[in-house]
């Protein structure tokens, strides 16, 4: 126990040295980011990092695999499939916007027209708005059923998030990166304190997962929630846990964070939806 605390304290200090340089390019960041986790967990094949903490914790993985055998989200995929193909009142469908459901691995995107980040969830609501339909709530429920089906159809595709050489796109990327490395909340902790510096270490009874692969499997079914949630539902939870005020789902801040973090997982296969504890 004492040793764990000592390890964490030492690591918190060293974390200030270990972070990505702020002036580096996204390509350099990605290389350093992924290499860091591969060096830290040499027994984990690169392609397995999309299984989150289960890529480094064999005991927990057994439970995970047992649940994945027939996962509760399979019912949501079925609902999502019906929802996705059900025509809007104007006769249009989601396919008119997306072309096909299996596009999870291509979001978030930078929209060069508006200069904004488009997440899969915001794209769904943009699609609905254009068809004259009501917006969906962003954290759970119908939107997560839709993305569950879309993620399922995307399985096996490799994440390929683009950061075009546009200062506005880079600004979003850097904002997300800053969020990830900035300490916040009453506990004064950054995302990176747990999921970079202490990845693999224990936080009380919990093993902290590596951030490489954090975004491949959304929406996720957490045992804690008992249902599916979108990336921004999870971000809000992370912020609350360090006693920081969460940002709104689909706020520019969370969109930027999602943009940065998903880009860091480029090259991994999409494997959503998935179950987590």
């Amino acid at each position: 126990m004492r040793k764990t605390i000592y390890t964490i304290v030492v690591s918190l200090i060293t974390s200030m040295i270990g972070t990505l340089a702020l002036a580096s390019t996204p390509t350099e960041d990605l290389k350093a980011f992924q290499q860091y986790y591969m060096d830290r967990f040499p027994d984990t094949p690169k392609s397995d990092f999309n299984n989150g903490v289960y890529s480094i914790d064999a005991a927990a993985r057994e439970t995970f695999e047992s649940i994945e055998e027939f996962a509760p989200y399979e019912i949501d995929i079925e609902k999502g499939e019906e929802l996705y193909h059900k025509p809007f009142a104007n006769g249009g469908t989601y396919n008119d916007c997306f072309g096909e459901p299996g596009v999870r691995h291509l979001y978030p995107q930078f929209d060069s027209e508006t200069g904004k980040i488009v997440t899969l969830e915001s794209a769904i609501n943009d699609c609905r708005k254009a068809a004259g339909e009501k917006k969906l709530k962003y954290k759970k429920g119908t939107i997560a059923e839709l993305t569950a089906y879309m993620a399922y159809e995307s399985r096996g595709n490799v994440f390929d998030i683009k950061i075009p050489n546009d200062p506005r796109a880079l600004a979003h990327y850097n904002r997300g990166k800053r969020h990830w490395y900035s300490k916040r909340g009453q506990l004064n902790m950054a995302c990176a304190d747990c999921h970079w510096t202490n990845a693999g270490n224990m936080l009380r009874a919990e093993r902290l997962g590596p951030a490489f692969g954090h975004m491949t499997h959304f929406p996720k079914y957490r045992a804690k929630w008992g249902n599916l949630g979108t990336p921004h539902r999870r971000f809000a939870g992370c912020n609350s846990q360090v006693r920081a005020k969460p940002f709104k789902a689909q706020s520019d801040e969370y969109k930027a964070l999602e943009y940065f973090l998903t880009y860091m997982g480029n090259g991994l296969e999409a494997n959503g939806p998935a179950t987590r504890k």
Binding site: A205, L208, R222, K224
Partner: peptide, 8 residues
């Protein structure tokens, strides 16, 4: 059964 840090 333990109380988790983030998952629990």
């Amino acid at each position: 059964v333990t109380i988790g840090g983030c998952g629990g």
